[in-house]
Design a protein around this nucleic acid. Sequence first.
DNA 1: TTGTCGTTTGTCAGTAGCTGACATTAGCCT
DNA 2: AGGCTAATGTCAGCTACTGACAAACGACAA
Lengths: 222, 222
Amino acid sequence: METAGAAEAVPRPGLRERKKRRTRDALLRAALELFTTQGYERTTVDEIAEAVDVSQRTFFRYFAGKEDVALAVQEMVEEHFVRSLRGRPPGEAPLEALRRAVLDGWDTINEAVASVVPVELYLRMFRLIESTPVLLAAHLRRSAETEEEIARLLAAREGLDVDTDPRPRLAVAVFGAVMRVTGRQWSTGEDFSPEAIRALTAAHLDQVGPALTGNWRTSAGS
Amino acid sequence: METAGAAEAVPRPGLRERKKRRTRDALLRAALELFTTQGYERTTVDEIAEAVDVSQRTFFRYFAGKEDVALAVQEMVEEHFVRSLRGRPPGEAPLEALRRAVLDGWDTINEAVASVVPVELYLRMFRLIESTPVLLAAHLRRSAETEEEIARLLAAREGLDVDTDPRPRLAVAVFGAVMRVTGRQWSTGEDFSPEAIRALTAAHLDQVGPALTGNWRTSAGS
DNA sequence: TTGTCGTTTGTCAGTAGCTGACATTAGCCT
DNA sequence: AGGCTAATGTCAGCTACTGACAAACGACAA
């Protein structure tokens, strides 16, 4: 149903499309660079636009708002996780699938991000999100949306209806909560490597059970 | 260390203080009334100020921002919960204390709120928060702060250090996640009474265990 | 009662994020 | 080459929010 013949699904986007993409990428990179060096609040949209030499109006044609640029990469990463989850074998128990999908996601974080920004910049941005109130707020809300998507996904997998059975949403919410504690802990720690966050993730997931028994007078963690 | 003698802690605030309080209350009530009738975004700060017949500048002297008014009552309610939690006997297991504190909080929601706005208005506002993206975002961030406070509280109670033992933060995060699912479910349901939310809370807390076993092919909930 | 003092309030001017409308530029295709 | 369409720039305007200064007003004592 496309230019018949060639197997190439991407013939060559044409100058216009390439230019658009370059502008978008430039805006994104400039924004993250400015955010991570001077801080989110102290960076104005005008500054970002100026750095790429486009008008402020153009910026808003590529991104819905200042928050949007700041969270763009994070959004890619979450999509990466969801994709990873969809790829899990159907037989796997829901929480097992979640666990493996996330761990796998961190292992392959490079591939998911590197095409737009260096991983290191993403990680710096992640920390900035955690420490900037308005960004954290926006991020938490988006996470809630992602959780809803995942809940429906798992429910479908298990043949349940999210509107009559609370368990999918509960399980996903709990899982998300653990992920958030993990991210927070990581962002305030010493080791800013992807390996560190992966290890913390596994450790925290292993601690949920013990944490919920309520009897904390036994062994400690971490 | 105060005016020695009399047991009366509140002698009479004086005209100035009373006026301030009246202005604040009026702003708060006017704001919630406008928000719940026309929606949050469609209400301007000027409108609120005008409804109380003060300048816009005065509004911002009482509230840090538009979000702030919208979440003011919710903040009172959360303080109410934390107070309730602090009142729990030290012997109680952490999660048991949380459960009872929240259930108790809903039972006494009237006393916590009625002094400022009618409970019904608070509940309407709660629903609005859930359905207004920017408000939901701000609310989630504040909840995260409250969770941190509670985690430290429980850790102290159990003689643990939140920075070395992840279990307090994990447990509180999980509990908070369940509460959020509950609030969301309630706000999209039919029954908008405090009793309904109380019942849902209990039901969801009972379902967390089953939800985490991962074996959802057995019984259903709700 | 009056006058001083400190707090609250209003006014004004300005910044930043964001949007609609319209003109201009620049790829694209024949 | 020239017309079509999509991207960009310009401009005007709205809303949330802030600093600065002056006016109004309650508190307190002479």
